[in-house]
């Protein structure tokens, strides 16, 4: 059996990579991908814990997270399309107009 803490470590690593990606990368699509990574680290946690407790809640939560994240990404892409149509760039820095 794979011990529980392996999963947790995996989750932490994914979380950190995701967070770092969001903070460091400047391409919006990459940022969105990093976000997915972030949220998937959560899923791994949920499923690992659910398995550990032999409880279905963890899996349900993970499914909810996947579903809702999908919606979120859909919205994000929609907004991105609107933005790109107004100004064709995918760089985070190019987007910024408001400051202060």
């Amino acid at each position: 059996m794979v011990p529980l803490w392996w999963y947790i470590v995996l989750g932490v690593v994914l979380f950190v990579i995701g967070a770092a990606g969001v903070l460091i990368r400047r391409n919006i699509l990459v940022v969105l991908m990093s976000l997915e990574l972030l949220l998937n680290s959560v899923n791994i946690n949920f499923i690992a814990f659910g398995h550990y407790y032999d409880d279905f809640r963890g899996q349900i939560f993970a499914i909810f997270v996947i579903a809702i994240t999908a919606a979120e990404v859909a919205v994000a892409l929609g907004i991105l399309v609107a933005l790109v149509r107004n100004k064709s760039t995918l760089k985070v820095d190019d987007v910024t107009m408001m400051k202060g």
């Binding site: 989750g11 979380f15 995701g18 967070a19 969001v22 919006i28 940022v31 969105l32 976000l35 972030l38 949220l39 680290s41 959560v42 946690n45 997270v65 994240t69 979120e72 919205v75 994000a76 907004i79 991105l80 609107a82 933005l83 107004n86 987007v95 910024t96 107009m97 408001m98």
Partner: peptide, 20 residues
């Protein structure tokens, strides 16, 4: 557009943190 995009990205990060 810009506001919405920032909002989505930061919102998703915060959701991720919350979920974690």
């Amino acid at each position: 557009n810009e506001a919405a995009l920032k909002y989505v990205i930061l919102g998703a990060v915060s959701t991720g943190i919350f979920l974690y």
